[in-house]
Amino acid sequence: MFGLSPTEMSALVLSLRASSLAVLWALPFAIGLGWVLGVKRFPGHGLLNAFVHLPLVLPPVVLGYLLLLLLGRKGLIGGPLYDLLGLRIAFTESAVVIACAVVGFPLMVRAIRQSAEAIDPRLARAARSLGASELRVFFTVTLPLMAPGILTGLTLAFARAVGEFGATITLAGNIPGKTQTLPLALFTVTQSPGGDAAALRLCILSLVLAGGALLASEAIARRTSLQEVPA
């Protein structure tokens, strides 16, 4: 397809699969955290908010290295997992998914938090006074009203995950057919003599994927803002 070599094709498929899995795994946590940060006020709120947004400002390689220290075979979490269960995370596809999830997570939380902040708190109060439990209020009022933020967060995080490079190469390596994602494949061909055509192909693919996700995010935001104008 599009004249892609089997390695490039596998990089594309891995990127799409890992990015999708990453955003889906991260979504419930992002919804919970986005809601807590948007609606609740508690001591340490600012600290938690800063911690969640840290991956946005940290160099991705630093993030990858920190993850490696945690999840590597001798890491704080990775060590016991390997010793007790024989599970290896670093330099596997799981590592790609984790790196993608970590870098996309703050974008999801941010979008969800903003949509949670925009919900009139009296709507939840009205629901409670109509006899709804906290759980019912969340699932029938809060969550549906956060939906635009959730969709925007999903698409932004997906676009960020597809383009992820630094954390992935540090935590998962650059193993063709196994952990080599689209940006890593692009990097590899730019380092090889005569790789210009392949680089251009992968570059265009990346642009299409990231641009598509951004356009989708914009369309969702526009649709939502139109709905909010009273008729």
Binding site: R125, A126, R128, S129, A132, S133
Partner: peptide, 10 residues
């Protein structure tokens, strides 16, 4: 509030 049986109209 859910058990108060007090309705509210804002």
């Amino acid at each position: 509030p859910a058990q108060r049986r007090i309705g509210v109209v804002f």
